[in-house]
Structure formats: structure tokens, C-alpha cells
Design a binder for these strands. Structure first.
Length: 538
DNA sequence: CTAGGGTTAG
């Protein structure tokens, strides 16, 4: 079709040049370019350098690294530029190790690397987190005399940080004579990823021209470090300053902070910001929105966003977000329906998908269904992990099948984790198997001696059966091992303000009202449990 | 005739 069109126009040559120029790396279909390629071969243009070069660039940028490599080997005399493009393709691909392979191959062909070659290779070793590759490349850089190239230096900082060698990253940084924003940002992100938020902040405050990458790196650092409030503060500061403008990447991190805080109003504001500023709603951002609404308790809004997304554009992360959201709201039936829908659009579930479904069963006490999901997981060729086993033990224990759960625990091919022992212990407590509970409680203290709750759990057990001396002994054991009891706490957002609640805390000004409501809710929950009609969403 | 290709944030 394409060919007919060009030939009728009478100027194949000109048309193809125009066509090729119009393609942007990410906005063309691989098959269309292949058609053009075929046309060029048929019409004898393929030997013309201009076409070959343009085509080659398009393939390289489209992420078809293997095809680009194939083209390269068919080129009678590829230059270092061509090799570089292939090496870059692989370093951005899912197979960065191949870019190092191609580098070796290139040298076998007698091609000498230049200062463009090294940043790609160093990036590949960063993605592989391979300090061995990284350091031997660094020595090659020194041998070839490219150590003062700022792109090379920047990539080395990133590589050392990605390999966890933050001091080496800093050494490269300190020895640089001049620095660009990328230099500062790489160092900042290095510290943030390393978990040293204090130093990340220092770099951020000190650097001359903070751009959107600087702000996004710092915000994401706080989110990854669990300092969600600080992440939002930094975001606010950026908004007040008015520039730089937040982009899609920034919003993904900020939405993550809202999710963890349960800050629904904040999250809605972010959603509005995204729409009003016409940020592109790519799949990553949409997934963050779905996740935010789901984690903030607004499952209907999560579904509204989810339903706007064309099914052929979805991936497993999006499905996990919505299935997990439904599951944690107790909508087991709906989450299973979406699981079926997901396989219909040919998105393969992963172990997280199964974990979401299993935890849904735990919430609603569905033992039989949990087993079915577990079997389905094994049928799909995945190997269940300890979290999956823990869900099964939990759901059995809650249902009072304590003996069965205990047998399962002993027969499974993994070592029991604290989560499994704890779940089983809770089951024993609520179903009166205090003999087994004591055994498990002791085992838990053994495997998890620094966890405050383990001692408290056992102490409470002894209190229940009025073995006061043993209960006291557990408290003393905590003093001896130096384990401190930290109260549990959570955040809730009420009309835009974040409120922190600490377990058994009576200091809140509305404490009396709050506990009245808690007791009311507990009674309501008991009623629902007595006549479990289930709840439906649609 | 001798261009062409680069590093950082989700």
C-alpha cells in the first residue's frame, strides 16, 4: 500500500526521505519501517548512504536492538558511530549485558571506541549493577584518555552509585573540574537511592540551578525512604516557587506519597493538577492514580480511572493496582472477575497478582478459594513464595483450621517466616488453642528477638491464661534484650488535614468521640460477621 | 565530499 502510494506520486526518492524524516523514535510502527526498508531494497536505494543511515537510526531508537545489531553485521564497513548506536540500543534495552558483548565484538573487528562509546557501556553496567564491569570500563576510560569528558564522568557517577559504591561516585564528583546539572543530579540521586537523604538534601540545596530532575529525584528519595510528609513539603515548596513545573515523573512520586499517607484530598488535588496542566496520562501515571485512589479508600474513583484505559494498553502493574485495591477493600468477587478479564486481554499475571487475590481471600475468610488460587499459581508455572504460603496459613488459621495450618507449615518446602508463625499464633489465640499458641509464641521470640510485638504477644497470652509470673517474665526479657515497645500508629486524612493516631492514645482533643465511634464500628462489624451477607460494589 | 551518535528523575 505504501509502495503504491509512493510510486503513483512518481517521486519515490523524495517521498521516502520525507516519510523517514517524519518518524519520531517513539511514534512509529516497527512494521511500517520494515515495509519502507523492503521498498528501499526493491528499488535499489538501500545502498545509498543517506537512507541506510536514517533507517538505521530509526531502528536503533525504536528499541529493536537485536534487529539493529543484525543490520550492523550486514553493513560491509560499519563505523564506530554504527557500533555506538547498537551498544546504546542494548544499554537501554532489557538486555544491557548484550551491549558489553557487542563492545567486545566491535574490538574484534578492530574498531577503536571513542568518547561516545563509554557512557553507553557505563550505563549498561549501572543497569546490571555490575561493579566489575563498571570498574574495568573506568580503567579503559583512563587508558583511552577520556577521563575528562563530562558525559563519561557523569555516567561514572551514576554507575558507582547504582552499584552501591557511593564513595567512589563522590570521588569522581569531587575530582571534576566543571560540572553540569546532570553531574549534580546524578550525585543527588545517588545519595537518595543509597538512602542517605541528608546528603541528598545537601547536594540539592547547594547546587546552582535546580531543574525538574533535581526536584523529582529529591521527592522520590523521600518517598522511597518512607518520609512521605517531607516529600509533600518539598513538592509544595516547588509549587510555591512556581518553577520548574512538575511533570509526569514528579507526579508519580507525589502520588506515591499520597497513597502511603492515605491523603485522599491531596491526591485529588494532584489529579486535578495533572488534568489542568495537560500532563500526558501515560500508563505509569495512570497506574499511580489508580493505586492512590485505591490505597486512600476511594475504590470507586480508582475504578473510574481504570475504566478509562484502553485494555490493549494495559500491563500487569496496572492490573495488580486495581485487583489489589479491590482485594484490600474486601471485594473478592470483583477482584476475581478482573483477574479473568485480565487473562482475556492477554496480560499475564505475576506473583504479586496472586498475592493480591490470596490476601483478598484472607480478608473474607475464604479458605477453599484461597487453595484454588494457590493451585492456579502453581499451574501457571510460578513457584509460590513465602508470602503466598503465609496467606494460606493465615486464612486457615483464621477459619479455625489451626491443626491443618500447623501441619501445612511443617510440610511446606520453605522455612517458616515470622509472618507465618504470627498468623498461626493469632489463629490459635482466637480459637482457644493456647497450648499451640505458647509453642509458637516462644518460637517467634527465638526467630525474631528484636521485634517488640513478639514479646508483647506472648506476654498477653500468659495474661489471658492468668500465668502472671510468665507474663511479667516476658516484660523483663524485653528489658534484658533492650527491645523497646513502640506503639502502633496510623495516619488518617480528615478534611485535608493529616491526623496521626497512636494505639491507645487518649491525648487527641476528640479522643472521647473517637473511641465512641470505634466501639460503635466494632459492634457494627460484629453484626455483619453474624449475618455475613457480603458486600457488592456494582 | 566526510556527517552521523552522548550522561540524570517515575
Amino acid at each position: 500500500m505504501l509502495g503504491n502510494c509512493c510510486i503513483r506520486n512518481g517521486s519515490l526518492h523524495q517521498t521516502l526521505i520525507t516519510l523517514l524524516d517524519q518518524f519520531q523514535p517513539n511514534s512509529f510502527s516497527f512494521s511500517v519501517v520494515k515495509q519502507i526498508h523492503a521498498l528501499l531494497i526493491v528499488s535499489g536505494f538501500s545502498k545509498q548512504h543517506l537512507f541506510a543511515s536514517k533507517l538505521f537510526s530509526l531502528f536503533a531508537d525504536s528499541g529493536n536492538a537485536d534487529y539493529t545489531h543484525h543490520l550492523l553485521l550486514h553493513n560491509p564497513s560499519p563505523s564506530v558511530v554504527h557500533w555506538n548506536r547498537v551498544i546504546r540500543s542494548f544499554s537501554n534495552n532489557s538486555t544491557p549485558n548484550k551491549s558489553i558483548k557487542v563492545f567486545v565484538e566491535m574490538q574484534q573487528f578492530g574498531i577503536i571506541p571513542d568518547h561516545y562509546t563509554f557512557p553507553f557501556l557505563v550505563k549498561a553496567s549501572a543497569r546490571l549493577a555490575s561493579i566489575e564491569h563498571g570498574m574495568s570500563l573506568h580503567s579503559l576510560v583512563l587508558k583511552s584518555g577520556y577521563q575528562l569528558d563530562i558525559f563519561v564522568q557523569n555516567s561514572l557517577i551514576h554507575m558507582y552509585a547504582a552499584c552501591g559504591e557511593i564513595l567512589y561516585a563522590r570521588k569522581v564528583f569531587d575530582e571534576m573540574r566543571q560540572r553540569t546539572n546532570v553531574t549534580w543530579n546524578s550525585m543527588l540521586d545517588g545519595y537518595a537511592k543509597y538512602g542517605d537523604l541528608k546528603r541528598a538534601r545537601e547536594v540539592f540545596e547547594f547546587m546552582p540551578d535546580k531543574d525538574i530532575v533535581s526536584w523529582s529525584s529529591l521527592i522520590d528519595g523521600y518517598v522511597k525512604g518512607g518520609e512521605y510528609g517531607e516529600a509533600l513539603k518539598v513538592f509544595d515548596r516547588m509549587m510555591v516557587a512556581g518553577e520548574p513545573k512538575a511533570n509526569e515523573v514528579t507526579m508519580v512520586s507525589v502520588l506515591g506519597a499520597c497513597s502511603h499517607l492515605g491523603a485522599l484530598e491531596q491526591g485529588r488535588l494532584m489529579h486535578r493538577y495533572i488534568v489542568e496542566n495537560k500532563l500526558s496520562l501515560n500508563l505509569v501515571l495512570l497506574t499511580s492514580l489508580v493505586d492512590m485512589y485505591a490505597k486512600c479508600g476511594a475504590i470507586e474513583e480508582a475504578l473510574v480511572v481504570f475504566r478509562t484505559i484502553p485494555k490493549h494498553k494495559t500491563d500487569v502493574l496496572l492490573w495488580n493496582a486495581i485487583i489489589g485495591g479491590l482485594a484490600s477493600h474486601g471485594y473478592v468477587q470483583e477482584s476475581l472477575e478482573l483477574f479473568v478479564e485480565m487473562s482475556k486481554v492477554r496480560v499475564a499475571p505475576d506473583e504479586i497478582t496472586y498475592l493480591c487475590l490470596l490476601s483478598a481471600c484472607v480478608h473474607r475468610g475464604l479458605v477453599k478459594e484461597a487453595w484454588e488460587i494457590f493451585e492456579s499459581l502453581k499451574r501457571s508455572g510460578m513457584i509460590p513464595k513465602s508470602e503466598h504460603y503465609a496467606c494460606l496459613i493465615d486464612v486457615m488459621a483464621r477459619a479455625g483450621q489451626v491443626g491443618e495450618a500447623y501441619d501445612f507449615l511443617n510440610e511446606m518446602p520453605l522455612d517458616p517466616t515470622p509472618a507465618m508463625l504470627g498468623a498461626l499464633l493469632n489463629g490459635c489465640m482466637s480459637h482457644g488453642r493456647l497450648d499451640l499458641a505458647e509453642l509458637l509464641g516462644k518460637r517467634l521470640v527465638e526467630v525474631d528477638p528484636h521485634h517488640d510485638g513478639r514479646y508483647v504477644g506472648l506476654s498477653n497470652l500468659y495474661a489471658t491464661i492468668k500465668r502472671w509470673d510468665d507474663a511479667k517474665m516476658m516484660r523483663q526479657a524485653m528489658d534484658i534484650t533492650g527491645v523497646k515497645k513502640f506503639p502502633g500508629f496510623s495516619y488518617v486524612e480528615i478534611s485535608g488535614n493529616l491526623e496521626m493516631f497512636i494505639a491507645h492514645d487518649k491525648r487527641h482533643p476528640k479522643s472521647v468521640d473517637i473511641y465512641m465511634m470505634v466501639n460503635f464500628l466494632l459492634r457494627q462489624m460484629k453484626k455483619v460477621l453474624d449475618c455475613d451477607e457480603g458486600n457488592t460494589l456494582y
